[in-house]
Structure formats: structure tokens, C-alpha cells
Design a protein around this nucleic acid. Structure first.
Lengths: 200, 200, 200, 200
DNA sequence: CATGAATGAGCCTTCATTCAT
DNA sequence: AATGAATGAAGGCTCATTCAT
């Protein structure tokens, strides 16, 4: 018992340190300096030790990725469980994502830099598919949403959020006005884009 | 005259062959097998010849990327120049992008597989910023659009399109129903998401 | 303690082996065969190991050069510190250089073969400038030398020594008669070249 | 007849151009940019043409070297043929070498940069051995010189000259005072280095 | 003879992974 | 379990030389 507990604690300690080290390296030197040597050195352990805790580099990076997206998945799950309407959940989602951005911009940025586009799409799916699908279902069922194709819903909500995140992540100079964008999105969801009066 | 023509033809021929070879390698073995040796071998030329046509690997990859996105930039530019309303341009844009997807799905897919997420964002910007900015300006000026924040506009149009593309690109099994999605988007742009009657 | 000692010993052992390997290669095949592959193979280690001990080829060659000239610099320094007259130091210098030549001819030869003429001049400077400058100052101050321009002094001493070394290094067949040359130099320094009686 | 003449003229023209091109490249970019490509491009001919006139790179460089040292050999030969005493020839030699330095410093410098130390020694021999040997013989025979070992003579004359050249060649900042050095050398040859009065 | 595209051997360097201690 | 030296496959790039046109 005692031994196993101790071992687990050390295991977690080391893995956390590795996570921090990877992030630090990415912050300081970028993707191409992310070698096992560098990680071991930053983490203050030997390369051999690294290989005792991770099968190989791929395994290590998978851990780092998981560690990065877990809190996001968790946060979104918490929103889904609230007892509020679908449109309110959508608004809360936007706020949460923007909040994540504020507090973890560095992480998000370097995470985006390390993963390939393809992997990133996959991660987006893992993070968002269930969430937006659930909100769409609730909104459609409760009549909160107009009758909308789920893919289109996913695209103009999750896809738009992703775009905004990317814009902010890679535009270091701009301090985004989250409230203004949030209000703009809300208005868009309420009224659409096209002005019918003019159209006529 | 004759000599220069001939040289230009050979130059184009080789560069095209290289382009195809790159795509083929990505298709068969993925990004990590994309070495200069492999490209040369696939293209049926020596490595030295490769370096006669491209300064280095980065240069070669830049060519491949340019080759991939050029027709898109061109097509969008052509749409912008048409004498139609902003909302029609938006619809045409969606159709064009979906069309590109249909005819060049393989290319698009491999392109997404080559580049990092960060580079991909940059490419999206190069492709889309001017285009959507121009449509937003026209729609706003002509009163075709409701008063909408340009960033929100960019996100719910370009961002949504990108999301749809990614969905289709990485979902090999699905035969997407473009018309249905197009109709869904149109309706969304016309009416928004939230059902006011219910809201009240 | 024990570990560090051991590591330092291994480090020295490997570097010495590398040094010997470089010399051997130069001896057998000349400068143009001096590749990292060849050095590693000759030293009985992998190329990777080579790069664990030397940052790059330049670093390795700098080590070899240093290793070659260090004993010379040291020996000359020891001569400068002796409590003898400048002209005796000059004689001791000649003897020391000839001695070095005798015991390390191979090393000197390969060193000359590695470096470019320009680098060689630089090395000569590093080795000799301080030494001959110091002797000149002492001899001039103590009245041991006639009033002589320091550059001329440097040329007819250090320059002449260098010439002799080169002659012997690249003349494999000749067994030089050091004592005779030493006596000749001494006489030259004492009496000059031109016979005044005849001149008249 | 006519054809052969023409061919020889073209041959000389091209070879001269190649010589100039090599010197220009060395002046602009140094040794490591001295590729056959670069030479061909500078000379305004194709690489293939280069190989029509020179068997290979080694052959080309041998030509360049010869071209560089020929005028020196010729100049020294002219001095040897003059009807003057050995000590006067020695002085004339120093003046001639210094003169060469003045007018061809750039050439000398880059020549020193391209050749290896070993080759440089060989060139020095080709240039100087016969010359100094002849002067030594004359001086010894005519009683102009004291009884001096020929190798020592060679070292304190030719070796010293070489040292002075190198000093000036690689010290760009200094404007050498040739006359002062010449006077210093002359005095040295006349009186030697060691002050006997002091010695006693 | 001139051209210059094609060649490919060969070089330096990196880095994930292994394993003896 | 920890260490870190050793490994060697693999990659990008250069450049002297050849040869078809």
C-alpha cells in the first residue's frame, strides 16, 4: 500500500514536471528545440528516467496534449450539466473559451504550434463534438433554436470560436475586446446576417 | 527564343512532377517520410537535380504550398470582381470552396497534413483576409448586411467554411451533401439561430 | 568524487584517442580524407560519440591544434622565466624548437598539413609573438643586443626558426645536423653576415 | 597555321580570364566560395568550357598558382643576372620583394589564403631556393660573405623576408615602413645581433 | 567547341533510443 | 530506479565531374 502510494506520487510529480518543462521549452525556444535531451535537462532528470515514465517521445507528447486539453473538456462538460437553456449554454461556452484563452494563452499558443493541422482538427473534435452536439440537441428539442442543420450549427458556433481563438493567439499585439465580440456573436445568433428590409 | 521556351517547359515539367511526387509521398507515407531523397526518387531525378530547381527543402515546400493555394486565391479574386451583391458573393464563395474541395480533395488533405497548425492559420489568412474583408465592406456599405462586427463576420463565414472543409477532408467515409449545408448556411445567415417566439 | 574522476579519465582517454586518430589519418591519407566518419571509425567510437565530446568538426580541430601547440607555448614560457641573459634565451629557444622537432616531427608535420597558410601564420603569432617580444625587450634593456628594430629581430630569429622547421619537416630524407646549424646561427648573431674587410 | 594561332589566342584569353575570375572570387568571398560554378560564372563561360581548358579543378588551381608566382621568379632571376656583388643582390632582393608586396599585396594575400601551408612551403622553395643559393655561392666565392652555413644563410635571409611579408600581408592596418626595415636588416647583416662589448 | 542540366558520392550534423553500470 | 554515454540511422546539402544536345 504505502509503497504503491509513494510510487504513484513520484510518478505524478515527475510527469507534472515533464509537462511544465515541455511548456517552458516551447515558450523559450519553440518546437524545433523540443528534444528528449532538452526535456530531461529542463525537468532535472536523466534521459533514461524519461524513458522509464514514457515509452517514447510520441507517448510523452500524447501525455502533454492530454494534460493540455483535459481541463477544457472538463470545463465544457460542467457547462453542459448546468440547468440552463441551450442558448445560454452557448453563451457560457463562448465565455469559457475566451476565459481559457485569457489565462492559458501561452499554453494554447504553443500547443497549436506543436501539433499538426490534422492532429489539431482531431483535438477540436474531441473537445467540441460532444459538447456542441449536445447543445444543438437540447436547443432543437426545447425549441430554443430554429430548425438548423447540426453541421451548420457546429460550423458557425465551434468553427467560429476556433477562428477567433486562432486570431487572438497568433496576433500578439491585439488586446481583444471579448465583450464586444461576444455581443456581436449574440446579435448574429439572434438576427442573422442578412438585412431583409434592404433585400426587398 | 526556341531555347528559352524549351527550358521553361522542362522547368515547369520538373516542378510539376515534383509537386505530384510530394503529394504522392504524403498520400502513401505521410509527412515524416517526406525527405529530399524520397522526393527525388519519386520524381525520377537525382537529389542534385532537385537542388538545381529548388534552393532548399523550405523553398520546395513553399512552392508546393503556393501551387496548392494559388487557384483558391485566384478563384476568390474572380468572385470579388463580379458585379453582384455581397450576400451573393458570400454564397458564391461557399460554393466555390465546396467545389474546390470536390475536385482537389486529395490535394487539400495532404496540404493540411504537411503544414503545422500555425502555418495553416497563416495560409488561411493569406487566402481569406482580403476576400472576406472586401465582402464585409461591400455588404456593410450597400446595406446588404446588418451592422456586424467585421471580426465576427470573418469568424462566422470564413471560420465556418474552414470548419466544414476540415470536417469533410478528414471524414473519408462521408459523402457530404453540399446543397443541404449551403441551404442551411443561407437560412442561418438570413434568420439567425435563436427562435424569438420561443424566447419570449 | 569517484564518479567525477572516472568521467574525467574517460573524457581524457577518448580525446587523446581522437587526437591520435586524427594524426594517423593525416599521416596515412592526408587532409582531404579527414572526415568525421573516418575519425570516429579510426578512434573506434561511433560518430554520435564524437559529437558528444566535440561540438562540431571545427571544435574538434581546434582541440587538435591546441593539443599540438600547447607544449610549445609552455616550453617557451618556461624558457622566458629562466634567470639567464637574452642571448642565452635565444639560444635555448632554438634548441627547444629543434628538440620539439625531433620528438614530435610527425605531429608538427601533420599540423602543418592540416592548416591553411593563413591559419598557420596566426598560430605562429600566438606561439611566438610574446616570446620573441619579451626576449627582444630584455636584450635591448640589458644592453645584450645591439640596437635592433623589434620587427627585424622577430624576422631574423622567429622567422628563421620557422624556415628551418619547415625545411626539416618537409624534407623527409635529410637527417638535419642541428648542432651545426645552431653554431651557424650563433656565429651569425655574433658577427653578422657581411665581411667588412672584404668590403673595403 | 592561321587556325592554330587563333586557337592559341583564344586559349590564352580564356585562361587569363579564368585567372582574373579566381582572384576576384577570392577577393570578394574567400576560399570556400571558390567553386567551379563560381569560376565559370565569373569568367562568363560555361562549366563545360572550363573543363575543356583544364582537366579538373586541381589543374586549374595549379595554373593559377603558376601564374601568380611566375613574375616573382622572373624578377628574382633578373636580379641574379645583374653584374653586382652578392650583398648588393641581397639588398636588391629585399627591395624587389617589398616592391612586389606593395603592388601585388592583394594577390599575395589571397594566394596565401588559398594554398595550404605545405604547398606554400613548396612554393617558397620553388621561388627562393635557387635564388638564395646562387647569392650565397657568389658571396662565399667572392669573399663578400663571412663563412656561413648555406641553410643558415637561407633562413636568416629568405626565411626572414617571408616572415616580414606575412606580417604585412595579414596586418591590414599597418603601413609598413619599408625603408626602416631595410636599414635594420642591412645593419643586422653588417654587424650581427650580439653586442660583444657588453658580453665581455 | 560550347553549353548547362543531371548526377551522386560524400560531408556534417541531429536526436530518439538503448543499455551497462 | 536512475544515470548518461554510446549508438547509428537518417536527413539536408554541396560540388566536382560528365555528357547529351
Amino acid at each position: 500500500m504505502h509503497r504503491i502510494d509513494r510510487r504513484q506520487i513520484v510518478n505524478k510529480l515527475i510527469k507534472d514536471t515533464v509537462y511544465d518543462s515541455v511548456m517552458e521549452i516551447l515558450h523559450e525556444s519553440g518546437n524545433e528545440k523540443l528534444t528528449m535531451d532538452e526535456v530531461a535537462s529542463k525537468a532535472g532528470v536523466s534521459k533514461g528516467t524519461l524513458y522509464n515514465y514514457f515509452k517514447n517521445k510520441e507517448d510523452l507528447m500524447a501525455f502533454v496534449e492530454q494534460q493540455t486539453i483535459d481541463p477544457i473538456i472538463e470545463g465544457l462538460g460542467e457547462i453542459r450539466e448546468r440547468n440552463i437553456s441551450a442558448s445560454e449554454k452557448l453563451k457560457e461556452t463562448a465565455k469559457f473559451i475566451f476565459e481559457i484563452f485569457k489565462t492559458r494563452k501561452d499554453y494554447a499558443k504553443y500547443h497549436k504550434e506543436i501539433i499538426s493541422y490534422k492532429d489539431s482538427v482531431e483535438v477540436s473534435r474531441r473537445i467540441g463534438d460532444e459538447h456542441f452536439s449536445s447543445i444543438w440537441a437540447q436547443g432543437t428539442l426545447e425549441g430554443d433554436f430554429k430548425n438548423i442543420d447540426p453541421l451548420v450549427f457546429r460550423a458557425v458556433t465551434g468553427g467560429a470560436f476556433a477562428f477567433l481563438m486562432d486570431t487572438w493567439i497568433f496576433d500578439d499585439e491585439d488586446k481583444p475586446d471579448f465583450d464586444k465580440v461576444l455581443a456581436g456573436l449574440e446579435r448574429f445568433y439572434n438576427e442573422g446576417l442578412i438585412d431583409k428590409n434592404k433585400e426587398k
